[in-house]
Amino acid sequence: MRVKNFSLNFGLGVFKAFSDEARVRILHLLHKEEEMCITDLEHILDFTQTKTSRHLRYLKNAGLVNSRKVDQFVYYRIKNQAQDIIGQIFQYMQKDATLLKDLETFRILYSNRELAVWKLHHQKKLYSS
Rank of each mutant, 00 (worst) to 15 (best):
M36E: 06
V65E: 09
I44Y: 10
A97N: 05
Y92N: 08
H28W: 09
Q49V: 05
V70T: 03
N112M: 02
R57E: 15
R25Y: 02
L109C: 01
K32L: 08
E33F: 14
S129H: 14
S129D: 03
I89C: 12
K69D: 00
Q123V: 07
F10I: 09
K124A: 10
Y58I: 15
E21M: 15
R23Q: 06
K69Q: 03
L41W: 03
F106D: 09
K125V: 08
V70E: 01
R77Q: 11
Q83T: 10
V70D: 00
Q81L: 06
N112G: 00
A82Y: 01
H55K: 05
Q81Y: 03
H28I: 00
R54D: 08
V70K: 00
A82Q: 05
A22R: 04
K32Y: 02
V65M: 10
E34V: 03
Q88V: 02
M1G: 11
V24E: 03
T52L: 08
A116G: 06
R68E: 14
A17P: 07
S53K: 10
D71Y: 01
G87N: 04
K16A: 11
Q91W: 07
I86K: 14
L29V: 09
L41D: 11
I108K: 04
M93Y: 13
I78V: 13
H122I: 01
V24T: 11
K79L: 10
H55Y: 15
T39Y: 10
Q72G: 00
E35C: 01
M93P: 02
F15Y: 11
D96Q: 06
K101P: 00
A62M: 07
V74K: 00
Y110T: 06
L41I: 13
K95H: 14
R107F: 02
S129W: 09
N112I: 03
V14P: 15
K60S: 09
Q81F: 04
Q72Y: 02
I26N: 07
F106G: 04
N5W: 05
D40Q: 12
Q94P: 00
K101S: 07
L45N: 14
I26T: 05
L100E: 15
K124Q: 12
L99F: 08
R77K: 11
T50C: 05
A17D: 04
R77M: 04
D40H: 14
L8G: 08
F18K: 02
H31F: 12
F18M: 06
R107G: 00
L109G: 02
N61R: 15
K4N: 08
V14E: 15
Q94W: 01
D102A: 11
N66L: 12
W118S: 03
F47H: 05
L64C: 10
S53I: 12
V3I: 04
K60D: 12
E33Y: 11
D96P: 11
F10T: 13
N112T: 00
F15P: 02
V70S: 03
Q88R: 13
T50H: 11
F18D: 06
L12P: 10
K101I: 06
Q81A: 13
D46T: 07
S53M: 13
Q91K: 15
L115Q: 06
K16G: 05
Q123H: 15
R57P: 08
S19Q: 13
D46I: 13
L126S: 12
F73R: 00
K69M: 01
K4R: 09
K95E: 07
N80A: 10
S111F: 14
F106I: 09
Q123Y: 15
N80M: 07
V3Q: 08
